[in-house]
Design a protein around this nucleic acid. Structure first.
Lengths: 196, 196
DNA sequence: GCCAGATAAGAACGATCGTACTATTGTGTC
DNA sequence: GACACAATAGTACGATCGTTCTTATCTGGC
């Protein structure tokens, strides 16, 4: 990898961290440059515009998310183990993981929902993919005989995702130590009532 | 009500709308002044600081929320009718209602979670109150014999709230027309499995 | 070790931010 | 209707925003 590409990746990594805490809009070229020890224009020239930076931050984070949450889960056996892994990996991603400000996608989802533009377009596409991933995992669980055949997989994906959002809020805004327990119990309940 | 108090209320109403769309941070004194047909300094003098404005926007919205979501629900008979009303009223608040950018509290919760200060403090206090309100409604439902006696009311509040967040996201980011159906089904499921 | 091109820095731009001050206009009271 | 004071406007401030353009430094292939 060339030198320029190297620093660009480093910038995106730092930007992803920062954006998960303060948001994409509040993330500023000047501040990011200072934190990276670069000049404003030096950093800027890697992206060409603030909007392009935002999109690439989302892309970078999506790649990380795939590698740490989705791919390991799909290496598990299909069915309940895979679904449970999706949840566990996501919990690690949000809490233990690099994402010091929680999940950037949760942050960006509410920040971008009323702000048209390329970042919003990317975010919407990504979230559709995420829901499809969840629904697909549920479909495989039906095939395995783990979940009941008449389960609405889109409904399942909705509820699974809702628990993640609920956890993220209770964990980060309320700092409620019981949040993880609540989320685990909610997932367990969802799985129990979806069983064959 | 004096003249100054009158315009101040009008400012807060407009600010609440705007903030629900673009966020508290992006909400700007200059832009708000322009939209209100006031001068920047004229508007500013009502609040004294940006942070104070943000807090008062949250307070204003909380008052509205109470009047449109909580109070009408608690005028319903305790138990399931009241819980169902809390959900229905919230749906109206987010979709039909004045909140053109969705629920300001959902927006502010993710925006403020990593930003210390008085707005965050107020937001946290408010959300604790909201969870307590939900748990209290569940406790009353147990007393009425509508929900089972061993129900964990805090767990119930967590899951109820999670569904609201999930709906908010699917409705506003994905613009998924099935979002309301998913949310209604999820609430129905939660109530079914909490029944006596 | 030179040289082309990649990479970064520097300086400047108009715009807008929050805030402080002063001046003007409006309102309600006697 | 004059007067005290509330309400709003005007102006200016330093800081920072995203972006452009020009200049300097670094890197890798011959």
């Amino acid at each position: 990898m060339t030198k320029g590409e190297d620093t660009k990746q480093a910038i995106l990594e730092r930007a992803s961290q920062l954006a998960s805490r303060i948001g994409l809009e509040t993330l500023t070229i000047g501040r990011l440059a200072t934190e990276m020890g670069l000049s404003k224009s030096g950093l800027f020239s890697h992206f060409g515009s603030k909007e392009a930076l935002e999109v690439q931050v989302l892309e970078f984070t999506a790649q990380d998310y795939r590698a740490k949450v989705v791919v390991p889960a799909f290496q598990m056996k299909p069915g309940l183990p895979r679904i449970q892994a999706l949840f566990d990996n996501w919990l690690d991603w949000v809490t233990i993981n690099t994402q010091e400000g929680g999940c950037l996608f949760v942050q960006a989802a509410t920040e971008l929902d009323d702000r048209p533009g390329m970042p919003r377009d990317y975010m919407e596409k990504w979230q559709q993919l995420w829901f499809e991933t969840l629904a697909e995992a549920a479909r495989r669980a039906i095939n395995e005989g783990h979940l009941r055949a008449d389960l609405d997989c889109d409904q399942f994906a909705f509820q699974f995702n809702a628990i993640l959002f609920g956890y993220h809020n209770s964990q980060r805004m309320l700092k409620d130590p019981r949040a993880e327990g609540y989320a685990r119990a909610a997932i367990a309940g969802l799985l129990a009532h979806s069983r064959a």
